[in-house]
Amino acid sequence: MTDMTSDSRARSSRAKGLSTKFAVHAVLAGYTLIAIFPVILVVLNSFKNRRGIFTDPLGIPAGETFSMEGYATVLTEGDFLTYFSNSLIVTVSSLFLILLLGAMAAHALAEYRFRLNTFIGIYLILGIMVPIRLGTVAILELMVDLNLVNTLLALILVYTASGLPVAVFILTEFMRTLSRDIKDCARVDGLSEYRIFFEVVVPLIRPVLATVAVFSMIPIWNDLWFPLILASGDATKTVTLGVQQFIGQYTVNWSAVLASLSIAILPVLGLYALFSRQLIAGITSGAVKG
């Protein structure tokens, strides 16, 4: 970078513009390669047989090196269908609760004046600064008392509690910017406060809800800590934990390891391909600038 700029100073301004542009693309493309190469390498090699993986790790799977043996092992030995449905149930239910309860609370904080408004607002977003994992010891005891160990409900409750602060924070900020007129009109028309929330406010905040959803989804889907501690039984394993333990058992079977990693990666990449615009728009909008 520095060479480029000092070099180009001597040249004409047009050449300078060109070389700067080139440098910008070189750095960005270079880093992009660093970011995705390892992922591509794993996915590519998951479609090879053992010999292909070791003799030509950088090659494209083709001809005799192409093999699905890793996937066959994973599908017969690991219970990935269960893990997937567990992850899906946990993530979708937690998201639903985070969005519904978060939006309701944010609506109350943004719309109504009452004495404890500021206090509850601050109380609800404290959790942004304090990771919920620090309460793990007591969370486990609580779940034992409630008979919820090794249930998906335990995970859903914990993730809902940990996702609420960010959701309430972002949604409250956004709801404060909504025009009051439309809600007051609805009141004049005699709509109840509940119908105003569900029929007037929710449709207005739909884009922000999507952003919060994508945001909250990633840490829930990817978490290892709470599945390991609260729900490590075979019937309640999530994908992240399932892959972690599967790989622990099959360390020598490289095709199976690579295939299980790919199985965990591909759905996330697929979803990202669908929602990346939403996610990036959310991150780069005012939501996190505070």
Binding site: L101, A105, H107, I120, V137, A138, I139, L157, S162, Y194
Partner: peptide, 21 residues
């Protein structure tokens, strides 16, 4: 009604465990 569910879940599964720890 709007506030209670969020405050309840958050208190029981986030704040209480922290204080209890």
């Amino acid at each position: 009604v709007f506030l209670a569910p969020a405050v309840l879940i958050y208190t029981v599964f986030s704040i209480y465990p922290l204080v209890e720890s």
